Simulated scan of single mutants.
Amino acid sequence: MATKTWFITGASQGFGLIFIEQLLQKGDNVAATSRSLASLEKAAGTHPNLLGLEVNLTDEQSVKTAVDATIAKFGRIDVVVNNAGYGLLGAVEELSDAETRQNFEVNVYGSLNVIRQALPYLREQGSGHIFNISSIGGFFGGFPGFGIYCATKFAMAGFTEALAEEAKPFGIKTTLVLPGYFRTNFLESSSLATPKNALDAYSSVRESQRMHEIEINGNQPGDPAKGVAEMIKIAEGDAAPLYLFLGTDAVDMAEKKLELIKNEIETWRSVSSATNF
């Protein structure tokens, strides 16, 4: 198997850091980005096949500099993993415009900046694979307090579906990854933001926050090392899914959503059909 070059965002922790460990072990090249190069080097160390990059994903010029540096060092990019992002837990009403926009800036526009800068190289070489790591919350949004976060992940699903069709003629594969609960630091305060001005009226949101921070955190069923290993296997194969539900809990929630939609369509079919000329 030929050596691949991977460009991975959010690589100083969680899935991103595990990608570095597994890919270097198999001999691939890794360009890894983080908001802090010092944090990345502390977590991942140094390696001849590792290029650490300090990147502000919300600044497209910063992203361009990182992509160009990857090409300069390794000569190509084979796989892009849009992994960077953070959670935001708060009711739609209580989250401010600034808090909401920042979540979109990182989770949505940061990924789009990477895609815009990497695609010219992938198109020119006529190959590549883009993994956009969303969340089961990008398919099933029924989590009190996660409306804005889910909205960012639904947005990622929308542009990924279109991107898959646009990139296919150039030999580029595209996969939307929708993980369930994996035992990473996602539910720690470093990765999960909460409202500056919480409203007492939203008891369901406060209970959701308590449950995620205390009961679910540290007890997630998904093994992130196994999740990363499966994504690497997919990148090595000829076929690739558009939708990859990662984890049995993600599959269960996806199936519940599909059943819900099916029932809604049947229940309201007469109304839907009453609008034609």
Rank of each mutant, 00 (worst) to 15 (best):
D249L: 07
A91P: 02
L50G: 08
G75W: 13
T46C: 07
E230Q: 13
P224D: 01
I136P: 01
T267I: 02
R116W: 09
Q209M: 09
G45E: 00
L23S: 10
C150V: 07
G45K: 13
S272P: 10
V108N: 11
E230G: 02
F170N: 01
F182R: 06
G87T: 09
H129D: 12
E99H: 04
A91S: 15
G222I: 00
N29G: 05
I115H: 02
D78W: 04
T152S: 15
E99L: 05
I130A: 01
F139I: 12
G90Y: 05
A250Q: 11
N132C: 10
E99N: 11
L37S: 03
L122M: 15
D238N: 15
R123Q: 07
V81H: 02
T248F: 10
L163N: 03
A98T: 02
L53R: 11
M231G: 07
K196V: 06
M231V: 10
W6K: 04
A32D: 08
L244G: 09
S36R: 00
T9N: 05
V177Q: 04
E161F: 05
L17P: 08
V30T: 14
K257F: 01
N263Q: 00
F186N: 01
N56H: 14
L176I: 13
K257P: 00
F139P: 00
H47E: 07
E161N: 00
F277Y: 06
I133V: 15
S135M: 08
S270W: 01
Y243N: 12
Y181K: 08
S190R: 11
S36Q: 11
N82I: 04
K262Y: 00
S270L: 04
Q22A: 04
G218N: 03
S273T: 13
E60T: 10
T194Y: 10
P224K: 01
N276C: 02
L192D: 06
N132M: 02
D200L: 04
F7L: 14
E215H: 05
L88Y: 13
T58M: 09
V106S: 07
M211W: 10
R210F: 07
A72H: 09
S191I: 00
P169H: 06
K26R: 15
N49L: 12
E259A: 13
E236M: 08
P179L: 05
E94N: 12
K153T: 05
A32W: 07
D28N: 15
P179D: 04
F245T: 11
V108G: 09
G45W: 08
S39W: 00
V67P: 12
T9Y: 04
Y243D: 01
A240E: 08
Q209A: 09
K42L: 10
V114T: 12
I18D: 10
P195I: 08
Q220H: 12
H129M: 08
T275S: 01
L199Q: 15
K73P: 06
E207P: 00
S96F: 08
R210C: 01
E124P: 00
T58N: 03
G45A: 09
L163W: 05
K233V: 02
